[in-house]
Design a binder for these strands. Structure first.
Lengths: 348, 348
DNA sequence: CTGAAAGCGCTTACAG
DNA sequence: CTGAAAGCGCTTACAG
């Protein structure tokens, strides 16, 4: 029956001071005598005073909450983004409300407006491929690719692609198969373009899994053993799950990795270092991406004091493209010299 | 310069009615003439009225927001839980605030209290292994294992384990290696116990990866080829990533799956159906788990009208254990008859 | 250095 | 069937 948690005025009454003074003491705003301030803070701690977000939000017009919109789960990368965004946001005093832009494309807009209705101060979005982020009064930080319109920050997918490709070329691979999933993805296109940029001297082909699956059904074989027979000794994939699919398909066909074929992925997922052989891949610098995105977003929120009707200008970060780190593991190795049997190169 | 978004009183002034009437019309609470109600709703739509969460929260004492606490990302399963919780919560009119119980164990309590400070009405938590969820005034739904104290709902990990084990036994495997990661995990223990329960006739050993890694370093080989030589023909893992590690290790050692050894996982992760061979695994019914957890949580919130100081009683669901579905794929097959070469069984 | 007062936007008895 | 009024908990000029 005791007042479970005191509010400001109960605290003030208990201390025999005014409610404004308590507020000032707790926020450190108004100038008041150091002893009083400490006395108030001690009492607040002891009585377990917790400020009401609702009261504060109503008064200040700020909720202290950010929205995070992620595409539907399928990309195992999202947890890492979410984790980093949450970490940085918490550090900046914000809460993070999640929303899901499920399968349907329209869901992304709906998710954004739902978040706005909930009163978020700003939004971080990783857009679904093939969508445009609507312009709103609420500042939105976009994490996609450096060339996406209104993009805020992202990994430098192109440079990352260039880096793996350079690695494969240096290993002597003369025929490289590029494996993408969906050509409508900005990220995947950037990675593939980057890879091609360093593969000018070598023969290159590109396959897109969604196109194969449209013809042969979900989970169909990629026909990689055939590509291997045609002399393709390196298989560069746009993400680790696809690299995994390639790796197990080749291993099942009796092709030894890396002796007879090299495989690379992207994203450095948890399991990529535990499989046999461990996967060569590229790692994003998520902590930095999250930090840059949130710094930019918070700045946009704060400079948006006036509540007029104009849409928020694009949220821009100090740096748009964060380098990726090439992680070389055993799934990539020297090209078999003849290009047909790895044993020849070993015994050369 | 136009009032960017109207509030209740602007809407009322615009319509020439009282603010209370507008509120009643929009919430459908007070009885008022149908025509007026419709007129008010139309105007609200046209002017883009969006109720202020802060105002409502301050008045009603409810934020309409739930907290979700997940262990640190490492388990690729969390996105699916998060997605389902978000979906069901949105359907019930709640927003979802995420929090991360990072590496340190104490972080879990901190995450919970942060959420409470933010004013959440209730919390869903998937506890880190080896932790106890603190008792708070705020209702908390726990998703762990049926035997965890104060557990609300979870998959029936034990029954799931029993099911795969039964499957392997039926395939004639006489020696089964159980592969766990960390013996301090409630979920993993339930799965392993379940498996053992159906393996009474067969020879069984259990290895824990963290223990191997403590001795030989992160990412060390599991020595599975040796177990295979000792006649173990089935490798039953507590989750898909471990199954993947086992599968690639065996494949790299030249052991054919499923001809020479069977492998099973848990959780039916995205890629488990795309690898070669596709993985036999168990699938949780996340939509149902999320629904049961949230139904129970919302009920606990609503019955908690009185704001006294007692901790919330455990949140209990209509059903504590949701069955898992065995998904049989090609990674599991008949035991090689001699137990040493699969060719013999083929040519038998 | 401290306090009285207004007001953020809403909902809910209550009065007419 | 509709309206006037109180009040949720806070912060912020402003007055003393």
């Amino acid at each position: 029956m005791k007042p479970s948690r005191p509010n400001l005025s109960e605290l003030a009454r208990h201390l025999g001071v005014s409610i404004a003074t308590v507020s000032n003491a707790l926020s450190g705003k108004g100038r008041l005598s150091p002893e009083l301030a400490r006395r108030i803070r001690d009492a607040a701690d002891k009585l377990g005073y917790v400020p009401s977000q609702a009261g504060r939000a109503l008064r200040t017009g700020r909720s202290g909450v950010l929205g995070l919109v992620l595409p539907d789960i399928g990309n195992p990368l999202y947890p890492e983004i979410a984790q980093e965004i949450e970490r940085v946001a918490t550090g900046a005093g914000y809460g993070v409300l999640i929303a899901n832009s499920r399968d349907e494309i329209a869901a992304q807009d709906k998710a954004i407006f739902q978040l706005i209705e909930r009163g978020v101060d700003g939004i971080v979005i990783v857009p679904r491929r093939g969508t445009t982020v609507p312009e709103t009064r609420c500042p939105i930080a976009i994490i996609d690719t450096p060339t996406t319109p209104r993009n805020t920050v992202s990994a430098d997918h192109f440079a990352g692609g260039a880096e793996v490709a350079g690695h494969l070329a240096a290993l002597g691979h003369g025929r490289v198969l590029l494996i993408g999933d969906d050509p409508s993805s900005n990220v995947q296109n950037a990675r593939i373009s980057g890879m091609r940029s360093k593969l000018s001297g070598v023969e290159t082909e590109t396959i897109w899994i969604v196109e194969l699956e449209a013809r042969h059904g979900k989970g169909c074989a990629l026909g990689l053993a055939d590509w291997r027979k045609r002399g393709f000794t390196a298989f560069a994939c746009v993400s680790d799950p696809h690299a995994l699919r390639a790796l197990t398909e080749l291993q099942s066909a009796g092709i030894a990795i890396p002796a007879e074929a090299s495989i690379t992925g992207f994203d450095n997922l948890q399991w990529s270092s535990f499989i046999s052989p461990p996967l060569t891949t590229l790692k994003m610098n998520m902590p930095e991406i999250a930090t840059l995105a949130l710094d930019a977003l918070v700045e946009a929120i704060q400079s948006r004091e006036t509540s007029d009707d104009t849409p928020s200008p694009p949220v821009t970060a100090r740096k748009a493209a964060v380098p990726m780190e090439l992680v070389i593991r055993r799934s990539s190795g020297p090209a078999p010299s003849a290009g047909f049997s790895q044993e020849e190169s070993k015994h050369a």
